[in-house]
Nucleic acid binder design. Structure first.
Lengths: 188, 188
DNA sequence: TGCTAAAACTAATCTTATTAGTATAATAGC
DNA sequence: GCTATTATACTAATAAGATTAGTTTTAGCA
């Protein structure tokens, strides 16, 4: 019963399942069932579940980076940074399963690099402000923490339902950016 | 072979193991071994692994709240908020396993309440500044996201090793607070 | 057409959580 | 002090999952 599976098909199905059901629910058993195949067959294409998860994370980080890049076309300065924040946040809300998959620790060089590329975008956006290297790093770490933390907490339902959370996000980003950019470039 | 186990002893051992090894590594099998007992025996004291995990989370949230309360004695205003942030951050760094356990989603009323009490502390600290309710909520959500996000990213080793991360944390908190408190109370 | 290698399979192992049912020791009531 | 009860630990078994070993099958190519 040759199914004509390959790495790509397995991965696409896995991505789709994780997007729909979340990381924890996606087992080799379920994935195999979905592909009409027995679990051990998947080992012909992947070393095991960990590798599949790593690939999902990689895919997600790359997709996110591409969306960010696309959204930043023709934008600069504070507007660009704000856009970055919102696109990132929206992605995490639209794809909670994939986002979760992407932020688990993997101790993997490729994952690390994919993450670094996204952080690197922020660095580029901040460059024109002409701040000191060290200050830049501080600012980016904080901004990243803010976005990431908010995304996680929102996803977990940690915020009550009463006040608009999207508004809170914009508000918080504005606060942080106001402080950061004023400190860095008092002229503007 | 009566071992004289009880809920408390099991929980203490579980907490210790999670603190040392991290959540994922602590299985009923390991916990039972550590207690010199067979896994099913644990069901005399807990409904199952989920309940043990929930209790660990609860313990952690309470311990964190107590540390925060203790550290806030005699402090007020901006200083108190800053102290809150640092105590929270330090706890997450000293007890990564427990912190992880505490922030997993449990869909549990008690957990929710314990978390709310910690957030409530921030609300108290912000009250004297006399801001609007809605603005307060926005500010707290952002601050919480910043602390939480930074704690997680630091723990995951997401930040490079070059620049002092503790310094980054203080820097970011300062930025955020500067923006937040200025916006709220221009006189200060 | 027949060979080779990839891709599927079955069977089995190991680990984990969990349930059912049993034995025993502590304890409460007499 | 004895007995009845109950809590606590046990063994045995089930179920789900990841993974490995070894086998069969089939597609593609010489």
């Amino acid at each position: 019963m040759r199914k004509g599976l390959d790495r790509e098909k397995v991965l696409q199905t896995a991505i789709q399942l994780v997007d729909q059901l979340g990381m924890e629910k996606v087992t080799l058993a379920l994935l195999a069932k979905e592909l009409g195949v027995r679990p051990p067959s998947l080992y012909n294409h992947f070393r095991g579940l960990q590798e599949i998860r790593k690939e999902i994370a990689l895919h997600t980080l790359r997709e996110l980076e591409e969306m960010l890049l696309r959204s930043l076309i023709g934008k600069a300065g504070e507007e660009a940074i704000r856009e970055f924040c919102h696109v990132y946040y929206e992605y995490s809300q639209k794809h909670p399963g994939l986002y979760q998959a992407a932020i688990i620790v993997y101790e993997d060089r490729q994952i690390q690099q994919a993450g670094d590329r996204i952080v690197g975008l922020l660095l580029e956006l901040l460059r024109p402000f002409g701040m000191e290297e060290t200050q830049c790093i501080h600012i980016i770490r904080g901004l990243r923490s803010l976005i990431h933390g908010f995304s996680m907490l929102k996803q977990q339902g940690a915020f009550g339902l009463d006040v608009q959370t999207d508004e809170s996000f914009s508000f918080a980003v504005d606060l942080y950016l106001a402080g950061a950019l004023k400190k860095a470039n008092p002229k503007e």
